[in-house]
């Protein structure tokens, strides 16, 4: 039996074309955001995962917990961002056990950034880190492709975000009440889903405050009006 170095998926089932796997990678062509508000932070995301034009998953959860009240929004390669989030979750768990205190959002953002920066040639990951801690309250950090770290009042990301820069800039207010803040995130994501082909499905949110994490879910068949869960 001959095996070429091109490594096409042969009948032996072993030799795999790595380049092709990379090209066909599952992508989170996405709409994600996180905002600060009066009592903490809110993360929001759509639920569409695509491989090319095919929707590989229509109910994806792109909001990932790395500690009790520190979460992240993932965009880019699903595999890369999951791997990075898993590493950070492990590191923060270790940190809180060793130091006997919960990590701050800054600590989480620092670890995320180090990984994204050191592996910038290998990763396609656009992350938003949002968290609440006793000392700093709600904080939002954005880590775009190159691995830089940006503190922001609110952050938007993913392919859908380009359609809502105007909406967010015009409607954003500091220190909103929770209901208003949830409304802001929902309206922004509705616009992103409407205009971006790579975004769609349900809207998921996580509200992080002193009280802990609270999940929201809104469905397209009720025009995102009813809160499920």
């Amino acid at each position: 039996m001959e095996f070429g170095k091109s490594g096409f998926l042969n009948e032996d089932g072993i030799h795999v074309d790595m380049d092709r796997l990379k090209n066909g990678e599952v992508n989170l062509g996405t709409s994600i955001m996180a905002i600060t508000f009066k009592d903490g932070v809110i993360l929001g995301a759509d639920s569409r995962t695509t491989t090319g034009a095919y929707i590989a998953n229509r109910v994806t959860d792109k909001l990932t917990r790395v500690h009790d009240t520190i979460w992240c929004c993932r965009s880019g390669s699903a595999a890369d961002t999951q791997a990075v989030a898993d590493i950070v979750q492990y590191q923060l768990g270790l940190f809180s056990m060793q130091s006997g205190k919960p990590p701050t959002t800054q600590t989480a953002a620092s670890i995320f950034q180090e990984i994204c920066y050191a592996n910038k040639d290998r990763l396609s990951a656009g992350l938003i880190i949002a968290g609440w801690d006793e000392r700093h309250g709600g904080q939002v950090y954005s880590i775009p492709l190159g691995g830089s770290l940006h503190k922001q009042p609110y952050a938007i990301g993913g392919s859908g975000s380009t359609y809502i820069y105007g909406f967010c800039d015009a409607n954003w207010r500091e220190g909103m009440e929770e209901a208003d803040a949830v409304g802001f995130v929902k309206e922004a994501l509705k616009e992103a889903i409407k205009w971006d082909g790579s975004s769609g499905g349900v809207i998921r949110m996580v509200v992080l405050t002193a009280k802990g994490a609270d999940r929201h879910l809104y469905l397209p068949d009720t025009d995102y009006t009813v809160r499920h869960n």
Partner: peptide, 26 residues
């Protein structure tokens, strides 16, 4: 005081992070 991350750029909301626990010493 609240310290920025080393090398930090950007800033949060001018009103500060929401939902801080008041009266705690750090």
């Amino acid at each position: 005081l609240e310290q920025p991350v080393d090398g930090e750029v950007g800033s949060g909301p001018s009103c500060g992070g929401g939902g801080k626990v008041e009266g705690q010493k750090h």
